[in-house]
Write a protein that binds this DNA or RNA. Structure first.
Lengths: 246, 246
DNA sequence: GAGTGGTCTAGACCACCAA
DNA sequence: TGGTGGTCTAGACCACTCA
């Protein structure tokens, strides 16, 4: 019976799902850019020849995924990392008081290199593909907190420079969005506890062998396309990673 | 103008929000228990004197919060930790292959004691209030993986025994639900990397001082009422904590 | 006041399930 | 075949923003 169900699932597509996919395609195609207003619900209903309620349901889902945002009385907008609430959207480290503090960015290096087998697999690239590798330290409250090791494909970020990273004060997802039109909409993280190696210990002002939190992240844009890999090593004496389970 | 808006926000409540609250209250009152079917949308619409669409929107939100679940053609049910997909809902540790493996429970102790100031604060209790303290090791794939230290208020879990924990093979949230009618619907976790102390090292078969993941969790039931505190110490050589950011 | 999103209704029809 | 949830429509009215 499950085999029958499987084929039915593939055939049947509610209208609002189809519209959701068409809206997403328009976002991928760049018809509406980050921060811009999209057409009104009535206008989209006319374009797709469906009722306003159906368009609404499609938009509802995109809003719940943080891809669009509504502003009552004004319109519906493409979400952007410029929004105050989105700026540190993916930074899950907070102090014991629950406050984040504003991170300072201290760039260590930004070089062209080739993708290792491991990173290539995570980014759907071929081993040895051209990538850009960034190393930096995030300083919060005057203390070095995270040593980040970041890799992005050169094909999508050609010309990426240390100056751009500095210009945006290390807010990389804002920079990707504004300089390259690439909007990160989600990420997958894998977390472990490891002993600090020499490089980590020095960067974070710790003893070698001290326990640090290792956060491996793959961030992706529309259509779940992975476009950034990063490995963060965090000192968690006074900070913690927080998570809400529902 | 913000002051005006604030009072308006307090006064204005959409119908579906009111219905959502009434449904939640019925759940708190135990009108429908975990796994039971609630009345049909049409019946609730009649009871509350609103249209079916309005009831539907209220239920939609409760479903998205994992509080209710729909079964097309059958009805709407109170979510339960018996559901296959809910059984390890809050366990975020997986092996490198992304598989969870079935955990075995090895109970170390289950005793009556008094709440420390720290735990009391997290559980909204008074310092020194009667609590039950459970220590156990979760074994996955034959290897001890997590040393758990769990505290619940005696007032809500009177009579909790080692036998109950064994009977449910350590699936505590299923046990809370079936034995005490308490359903955990969410949790907050704070994660750090720490060095294993002697007790931890012994329980997890590690060297003292080895880095371990420390997960502090407060789990809550309907109305965000906290009813369980736990501290898990995890060995993350072959496992990792995973998280999806959206 | 015009335009937008937000709520609510009433009713139609489809998909699914169980008896 | 009847009852349930799932989709879709058309239209009304409310709340908000801005010119």
């Amino acid at each position: 019976m499950n085999t029958v169900t499987a084929s039915q699932v593939l055939l049947y597509q509610p209208l609002y799902e189809q519209i959701k996919r068409m809206l997403t395609q328009s976002l991928i195609d760049g018809e509406w850019k980050a921060g811009e207003m999209i057409p009104s619900e009535m206008e989209l209903a006319g374009r797709f020849q469906v009722s306003q309620g159906t368009v609404r349901k499609a938009i509802d889902e995109l809003v719940s995924e943080n891809i669009l945002m509504r502003r009552q009385g004004k319109g519906t907008y493409v979400m952007t990392h410029n929004e105050e609430m989105m700026k540190l959207r993916f930074l899950r480290l907070t102090g014991e008081d629950g406050q984040k503090g504003v991170p300072q960015n201290q760039l260590l290096s930004c070089v062209r290199t080739k993708a290792s087998a491991k990173v290539a697999k995570k980014l759907n690239l071929k081993t040895g593909a051209a990538v850009i590798e960034i190393k930096r330290v995030l300083v919060i409250g005057g203390r070095p907190l995270i040593l980040d090791h970041i890799i992005v494909p050169s094909s999508e970020f050609s010309g990426l420079s240390a100056k751009q990273i500095d210009d945006y004060k290390g807010a990389l997802y804002r920079m990707y969005e504004q300089e390259y039109g690439i909007r990160m909409i989600g990420a997958h993280e894998e977390i472990k506890a490891v002993a600090a190696e020499a490089e980590t210990a020095e960067a974070l002002d710790l003893a070698e062998g001290a326990p640090v939190l290792q956060i491996e992240r793959v961030a992706y844009t529309y259509g779940d396309r992975p476009l950034e890999w990063r490995l963060g090593l965090c000192h968690t004496d006074q900070y913690h990673y927080h998570n809400e389970l529902e």
